[in-house]
Write a protein that binds this DNA or RNA. Sequence first.
DNA 1: TTGTATGCGTTATCAC
DNA 2: GTGATAACGCATACAA
Lengths: 331, 331
Amino acid sequence: MSTIQDVAKAAGVSVATVSRVINNSRSVSAETRELVLETIKKLNYQPNLLGRNLRRAETRLILILLPSISNPFYAKLVKGAEDVAHKNGYNVMLCNTDSDINRERMYLEHLKNRLADGLIFMSPEIDKDELTSISKRFPVVQCSEYKEGADVPRIRIDNMAAAYKAVKHLIGIGHRRIGLISAKNEYVSTKQRELGYRKALEDSGIDFDSALVKYGNYGFRSGLRAGNQLLSIDNRPTAIFAISDSMAIGAIRAAKERGLKVPADIAVVGFDDISFASMCEPPLTTISQPKYDLGCAAMEMLLAQIQGKPFETDEIVLEHELIIRQSTIDC
Amino acid sequence: MSTIQDVAKAAGVSVATVSRVINNSRSVSAETRELVLETIKKLNYQPNLLGRNLRRAETRLILILLPSISNPFYAKLVKGAEDVAHKNGYNVMLCNTDSDINRERMYLEHLKNRLADGLIFMSPEIDKDELTSISKRFPVVQCSEYKEGADVPRIRIDNMAAAYKAVKHLIGIGHRRIGLISAKNEYVSTKQRELGYRKALEDSGIDFDSALVKYGNYGFRSGLRAGNQLLSIDNRPTAIFAISDSMAIGAIRAAKERGLKVPADIAVVGFDDISFASMCEPPLTTISQPKYDLGCAAMEMLLAQIQGKPFETDEIVLEHELIIRQSTIDC
DNA sequence: TTGTATGCGTTATCAC
DNA sequence: GTGATAACGCATACAA
C-alpha cells in the first residue's frame, strides 16, 4: 500500500507538492500536476484519510442512530438527512442500536473519539442528563423522537395535535366509544399521543374510559392482541385509534377475524403512514409525518452546529397531515 | 478537548504510562494506574481514535452496503452480521447506497482510504471486474445478492432450487397454468429464480408460455400491475409465482379486486418471507431464506480475511425453506 | 511554483 | 515500572 511519500519519491517531487495536487490547491504548475497525477495512477495510490482527518481534525462523516433498521418509518427520514449531507460534502453512516442503551453508547464513542463530526439521534435511549452533557461537547440533534428536558436541539411534529386530529376525525363521523392502542414506554411521542386522544374526547364531552385503553409494542402482533382485547369487552368500541400503523393493521385483522366489517362495524386510524398503510385492506386512515423534511431539517441543524453557526431556535416543529382512507370512511 | 499529553502532564507521568493505562497493558503499578485514571476522569479525557487508528493501521470498523434501508429483507441479515462482529470486537456501520453506483463508490472510498477494515456487499452495483479488483486489495464479501464472475467470496442460497421448489409446490397441488412475476434487472438471483421456474415446468411436462411472464420492480404496486396483466389474459393462470413477497401481495390484491378468491381461484407464492408475509390476507406461501445465518456467515468470512486466515472456500450456500401458508392451500 | 520542517494524537520500541 | 522518542500519513506555515 503506497503512501504519499512513495508518490513523491517516484515522481521526484516533495510530499507537499503531491498533497497540493491531491487537494487541488492552486500554485502547482500544469506539468508537475500532470506528472504527479500519472504517478498516483501508476502506483495505485489511495490517500489514507486517517492521516488527513487527524491533521485536519475533521472527518466529514455524520452518524445517524436508529433504534431499528426494519422499521419502515425511518427510511425516508434517513433519505432526507442523507440528501442534505451529500449536498454539503458530508457522508452519512447508519448505526443500528436495536434500542439497546449499550449499543447506543458504543456508537456514541465514535463521536466522542473524533471518528465522526456529528450525530443525529432518531430515538435516544440514554437519559436527558447524559444527552445534555454530550450536546455540550459535541454536535448532536434529536430527530422525531426526543427526550424531554434534554438541552439538545430537536426536530419533531406536534404529536398531541396529530392524535387530537385523528380522534376528532373519528368523533366527526359519529363515533363516541373510541378505543386507544398505545404503548408502555417512556417516549414523549407516546405520552403526547395519549394526551391528544384524551383532549379530543374531553373537548367533545366524551368521558374517558380506561377500559378502552390497551397496550402494544408498535408491532402487528401486539396490535392484533390489543384489538382482540378491545373487541371482546362488553360495550365494545366502534372505533380504534392506534399510535402506530402496524398496530392499527393488527387491530383490523382482529376485527376481520371476528367477522366485523371495517369501517362499517369498526373504524380504525393509525399513525405514521408507513408504505403498507396504503397497501393493506382496507387502506388505512393515518397521520402522515413529513418524514423527508424532518430528516432534512435535522441534518441542516446539525451542519449549522458543526460549522459553528449560531442557530436561532432549539426546536423546529413541522406540520403533520391526516390521510383519510377507507378504514374510517367507506367510499 | 484534552489530549493524552494533557493527562500526562496533569498526572505528572509520561504519555507512555497514560497510554499503558488506557490499553490495560500490564507493567504499571497500581498507584500510578489509579492516579492516571483519576486524572483522565478529571480532565474528561477521550482518546482520539484517529491517532490510534493511524498508528495501529486498523479501525475495527466494518461497513455493510445496503441497496435500501426500507427493504425489510435486510434487517435480519444485518442483525446476524452485527452479532458476529460485536462478538469479535468490531463495530458495524450501515451504508445506504439506494442502488446508486455513485453512492456505492463513495462508500467504497471509505474502505480504500483505510477508514474501515472490511466491507460486505448486500447487493453490489459495480461490475465484476471492479469488484474483483477491490477484493484483491481489501477484505470484502458478497452476501445474498452477488455478481457472477466476480472473484469475491460470497454467501448465498440456491435461488434456482428455491424457485424450483416453489413452482413444484404449485404443480403438486394441481396447477398447470402458472404465471411468473419477475423483474428486469441484472441480478443473479433474478436469473436463477426464472431458471428454477422454467425447470419446474419442464420437469413436469408443462410448456413454457411467455405470455405468462410479467415484470415488476419488487414493490407492491408493480406486483399489483403485473397481477392485473396476468389475470386479464384470455386463458388466465390459476397460480402465480412472484420473485418477491411485496409483488406477490400486490398480485393477491389484483385478484381480490377482480373478485377472485385466493387460493380457490388463484394461488400465489412469494419469495423472501418478509414479516408482512404472515400478516397479509391470506398469509403468503413463500420461500424463507436463513437471513440471520447468512449475515453471520458473511461476517465470519470477512473477519477471517481481515485476520489473514486462509479460507477454504469462496462460496457458502445455505439452505432455504418453503413456508406453506393459506395463499396456496386453504386449511 | 516548490521544498523543508513541524505537528496532529496515539502506540510501541528501546532504554534505564 | 517508567520515560524519552520515533514512527503512523498527511496538510500546512514558512522559506526559498
